[in-house]
């Protein structure tokens, strides 16, 4: 247990928006998989190829020896994914029931919940950006030149699971949080809007920027996968660095630092 002083690390807007994101992204991901199940393939280009093949991923169910098998094709390589992708519980569906909201197939319900939380996410982004610009949190997130020089050491320390509990974020933390907030979430919003036929009329350059609506849909999906990867590492780091201290920090703002560090 760290024995250093308690520091006030996360302000109220930072904490509230953190939890709004957590809730929104939970719903957005699971309703997103519900929506994906209505057309379980990803394409490159403006349209989905039916008379030609421009898919990089397809998830199918095929009847084999009287049983339903899930078949997933990624860049031409074929995998049997029964039970998880393509077919599960004897049903033909891309992502299994446990990973979709609602659990039963309902594109309409998935869409309604998805767009509700899309608005919550966008609203949270706006509040967070304004508050963080005013209270200095933005500067807490952006790596300084000294940070970047310390990057190799920080990587080595993380690899040895040696964490420095200080008032300041380490450079890897800054890079991880900044890439979620300044790259992944904006990319999600922009690729999402690229898929809207209404918004396409307002900004035709947007789907063009992503090389077509279907490519934008593919990037939307892959960014989701990247965010799931971030979530897994985020959880692992919390567990490894001291879950009680980390949870107190994101709930109350107060963080116990190590002795002799940033006191």
């Amino acid at each position: 247990m760290p024995q250093g002083p308690l520091v006030y690390r996360q302000r109220l807007p930072t904490r509230i928006t953190h939890w709004l994101w957590a809730v929104s992204l939970f719903f957005l991901m699971l309703t997103g998989l519900q929506i994906f199940n209505a057309h379980p393939s990803l394409h490159i280009g403006k349209e989905a190829g039916f008379d030609y093949d421009n898919a990089i991923l397809t998830i199918d169910a095929v009847e084999k020896d009287g049983a339903l098998r899930g078949v997933t094709r990624v860049f031409g390589a074929e995998f049997d994914t029964t039970g998880f992708l393509g077919a599960s519980n004897g049903e033909a569906r891309a992502f299994l029931a446990a990973l979709t909201i609602p659990s039963k197939p309902s594109l309409a319900t998935g869409r309604v919940i998805h767009f509700f939380f899309a608005w919550v996410l966008v609203g949270t982004m706006a509040v967070w950006l304004a508050a963080s610009a005013l209270n200095g949190h933005l500067r807490q997130l952006l790596p300084t030149r000294a940070d970047l020089r310390a990057l190799p050491r920080d990587i080595a320390d993380h690899a040895r699971l040696r964490f420095h509990l200080s008032a300041e974020y380490t450079v890897l933390q800054k890079l991880a949080y900044a890439s979620v907030l300044f790259v992944a979430l904006p990319l999600m919003i922009l690729t999402g809007l690229s898929m809207s036929p209404g918004f396409n009329a307002a900004a035709p350059w947007l789907p063009d920027l992503f090389q077509g609506r279907q490519t934008a849909r593919t990037i939307h999906f892959l960014t989701m996968v990247a965010l799931v990867g971030f979530f897994a590492v985020h959880m692992a780091m919390i567990l490894l660095a001291g879950p009680l201290n980390e949870m107190r920090s994101i709930l109350t703002g107060w963080y116990r630092t190590e002795e002799g560090k940033d006191a």
Partner: peptide
Amino acid sequence: TRHDCVEGWSCI
């Protein structure tokens, strides 16, 4: 024009 189905596919 591009026809966008609610399911997720498009066709020009």
